[in-house]
Design a protein around this nucleic acid. Structure first.
Lengths: 349, 349
DNA sequence: CTTGATTGTGCAAGCGATTGCACAACCGGG
DNA sequence: CCCGGTTGTGCAATCGCTTGCACAATCAAG
């Protein structure tokens, strides 16, 4: 070993070699001890472990990953428009829950958007460069070329929201909340309390989740032998202001409706404000139900009735499943679950 | 090279060796070419680069990091109670901004809390194991032992919010918004519009930032030769409900006040609701100003006047500075900047 | 008291990159 | 035509860890 060749300053970090030298054993023994390899005698193992902890030893993740081809890292792929969605709080809280679950499993998580600022695919980069062990897709429509890479490298993928594309094409594990049922429950509550004329506000560029909410809306009508008045079905972008404007513009028509179902809380809040400004009292003259159950809904007056998505459960299931797949306990099958949402009743309905 | 020794299945990934073989050069030449080392001739370099991109080559981050001792990764240390703070939205958006800036700089970012679920320090783990290149502290009171590790390893640290402890002890780079000035501006606006009796709602367990807001509140009074009525200074936890209860309980007293300054928007919303419920009209009888300028403030009625913290700017400055330190362009000095906040006037004041 | 199985450790190659130094090829000036 | 000075590449060591295989020591059985 020619020391002179390597004049980068020596790291301060303690290595397995240091431990080996001090313990009078080889690095293999140190490695095996710290990894609880049963071939090492109990005494040796304990001695090494004690020494390691005295020396404040921590494995070098890079070296280990280079050797084992596992990085202990998971990519959390978010929509490119998370900033806009951030406003809804819902996704941020879901991310928080997922991070927490992964941390408990000893996995670090790198949150990315599907595409990097330079146009390159972030998924590609994280898979090829960082060698992430798994991927959790959060409402992301990942690119076709990404799928090739993911499949080629055999990386486990879990979805926690529908995706606009590639969904049926791939048999992937998922944990979704049931948006049809959510839409159904919300509409039922409105039909119960507000009569037969129930408006709804959906998204202009509806993704599958929104389409399912609408389907629930229609099925709730059908279940009672009714159909929605199509003039009461509105589509706007997901923002307070657009919902506000839409409701204001159609105030006359909405005066004939006994209830309104907005497919996101943000839109519900905008709608509710517009109703108030138009002199339509909520809930007396028109009930309102939103979707997502964000905390803001409890800060307005009247407080907002909303469909709650059990994100803690979704996060937990997704992370547990991912952990199982990572340790080879996948069972070969595909796990796909629909989690039922919960209607949280407050003053607006 | 004894191939038989290594029977883990060969990775699908393209390596520098593959490129070298195909190009008929050595791995060193490949490495130098792809890293734009000037000692390689332009023709060779271009040829290698073309080949690499044809082969969909990406560097292996672990191998590179093992060699260079740089991981291209930054730790973003959050308060342990981010979930509670998440409700305020402000920190989530700040995290989003920071991630975006780091991404533009080619850095991945791992969001952690100071302490892991198992009680171990996450900072320690990320520094020792993952070899993060830098750390951004987000309102985190990092443990004393963490500081030892950080200093020992010479890792650049940037703070983007005050910390309760270790603050003066360390000469660290920071970008803070000026909470004294923020408190001053808010109070001034209230004194202008609501007369001499201005209440304030601070935090029960105030951190330095909250203390500064209170200082601004007092200095604004002093600047006009006034002092606040101490009976109008309340302290509650940072929640809608606590602020609501506090204001409700003290409604009689508050009837004599012309304005109220809540140190967070969440509290401001709770207070505003309580005032309304107590029959005190906002803003006619009592003006209200909050702090943080979260979007929810524009969804309530009246819309909330609030102190805006320029988080985009803070995020940008912090990340640029970190990048400079990482590339050794720190200049040896310490950069500490106070960014002025902005009062956003809406209906409540 | 041999012999074959069992245990516990060590050796050394390998993971995929970086990089100090050696060295061959080519250059122009004396 | 010889020589010191660029230029461009290659060699091989190194980063810190894992792991297949070899091998010494111990043990139970014949």
């Amino acid at each position: 070993m020619c020391k002179r060749l390597h004049n980068r300053e020596r790291s301060i970090a303690v290595t397995t070699r240091d431990i080996a030298r001090l313990a009078g054993v080889s690095v293999s023994t140190v490695s095996r001890s710290l990894n609880d390899n049963p071939r090492i005698s109990v005494e040796t193992r304990e001695r090494i472990k004690r020494l390691a902890s005295e020396l404040d030893f921590e494995f070098d993740a890079s070296a280990r990953s280079l050797s084992t081809r596992r990085s202990g890292t998971v990519a959390l792929v978010c929509p490119d428009f998370l900033d806009r969605f951030a406003n809804t709080l819902y996704l941020n809280l879901l991310i928080y829950d997922i991070r927490e679950n992964l941390a408990a499993l000893g996995l670090d998580c790198i949150v990315i958007e599907a595409a990097a600022p330079n146009g390159q695919s972030n998924v590609r980069r994280l898979v090829l460069q960082r060698k992430v062990d798994g991927i959790i897709l959060l409402l992301a429509s990942t690119l076709a070329e990404d799928w090739d890479i993911i499949k080629k490298h055999g990386i486990p993928v879990i979805q926690v929201h529908y995706m606009p594309t590639y969904f049926d094409a791939e048999r992937l594990d998922y944990y979704f909340t049931d948006n049809i049922q959510g839409g159904f429950m919300a509409t039922e509550a409105l039909l119960d309390a507000g009569g037969e004329r129930i408006a709804c506000v959906t998204l202009a560029h509806a993704n599958p989740e929104m389409k399912d909410r609408e389907r629930g809306y229609r099925e709730a009508h059908k279940a009672r032998g009714l159909h929605p008045d199509e003039r009461l079905v509105f589509a706007v972008s997901n923002s307070f202001d657009e919902a506000y404007e839409c409701v204001t513009r159609n105030a006359t028509l909405l005066r004939t409706a006994g209830g309104l179902f907005a497919f996101t809380d943000i839109m519900a809040l905008g709608a509710m404000r517009a109703l108030a400004d138009a002199g339509i009292r909520v809930p007396e003259e028109c009930k309102v139900v939103g979707y997502d159950d964000i905390e803001i809904g409890t800060y307005v007056k009247p407080t907002l009735t909303s469909v709650h998505q059990p994100r803690e459960e979704v996060a937990r299931l997704a992370c547990e499943r991912l952990a199982a797949l990572l340790s080879g306990k996948g069972g070969g099958g595909v796990e796909q679950r629909l989690i039922p949402p919960v209607l949280v009743r407050r003053e607006s309905c």
